[in-house]
């Protein structure tokens, strides 16, 4: 887990994020990775999930300045890009106080980086080599508790528009560095009990019942749109 260590060493990247002419990239699974699925936000089938690790591998990461702004409506982004080294494997549970894991900081020309492309790929090495995303933890429902490892080998390319959140991101100036974020919405895998059963997300989510016997299971990412930029969507393409 060399790259895991590297990513961990970048956890204090707040200072780097403030460095002029640089762009720092983060990844997050938000509270669903660091806190888990707790009531009322249980899985769609009523399980509480607590993760010990959420291991994800990213590659082919490029931040883009696009004009007109890329609208996540195609797999290709046209603009000026800053490429990040990869692949990089991180544990989204081992995050900073903001729930983020720093991936890397790169020199970047001033401008607004309003698009981001990246791929979820199988890890090339380590204990989960061959898997692009792994959930390890404990599930609890009605007094039943099971430990689980859920993993997928699927690779998915993402072409995302601008980050959407409370703060607009991606601005690099001569005085300040910028930040961008890959955001994984884990509820697109497990669903949400606090959302209607016919919510499109719940209809496509895997839930946890299929893994209720515990142990190791593999799952498919087919139809699951986990990758986002904040609350902004991405165009995703299975690889």
């Amino acid at each position: 887990m060399i790259r895991l260590t590297l990513a961990a060493s970048l956890l204090g990247a707040g200072a780097m994020a403030a460095q002029a002419d640089t762009l720092t990239l983060f990844a997050t699974g938000e509270d669903q990775a660091t806190v888990g699925f707790h009531a009322p936000e249980l899985t769609r089938d009523g399980w509480q999930l607590d993760f010990s690790r959420v291991i994800v591998t990213f590659d082919a990461i490029t931040a883009w300045r696009t004009d007109p702004p890329f609208q996540a409506d195609s797999p290709a982004i046209d603009g000026a890009g800053v490429a990040f080294d990869g692949p990089v494997t991180v544990d989204l549970v081992d995050a900073d106080a903001d729930g983020r894991v720093a991936l890397a900081t790169r020199p970047a020309a001033p401008g607004h980086y309003n698009a981001l492309s990246w791929a979820l790929v199988p890890a090339p090495e380590g204990p989960f080599a061959g898997y692009s995303m792994v959930f390890e933890g404990t599930a609890t429902r009605d007094g039943t508790q099971v430990t689980f490892t859920l993993a997928t080998r699927d690779a998915v390319a993402h072409a995302c528009g601008e980050y959407l959140g409370d703060v607009r991101k991606g601005f690099v100036t001569a005085d300040t560095g910028g930040t961008l974020e890959i955001t994984l919405h884990l509820d697109h895998v497990f669903g949400r009990a606090d959302r209607p059963a016919d919510d499109p997300m719940n209809r496509q989510a895997v839930g946890f019942d299929a893994f209720a016997d515990g142990g190791m299971h593999e799952f498919s990412m087919d139809g699951l749109h986990v990758g986002h930029v904040g609350e902004g969507h991405c165009h995703d393409t299975p690889l």
Partner: peptide
């Protein structure tokens, strides 16, 4: 007028 995503119909778009 445009969608925020062109993903499949199961993905709720805005």
């Amino acid at each position: 007028e445009r969608p925020a995503t062109t993903a499949g119909p199961m993905q709720r778009a805005v």
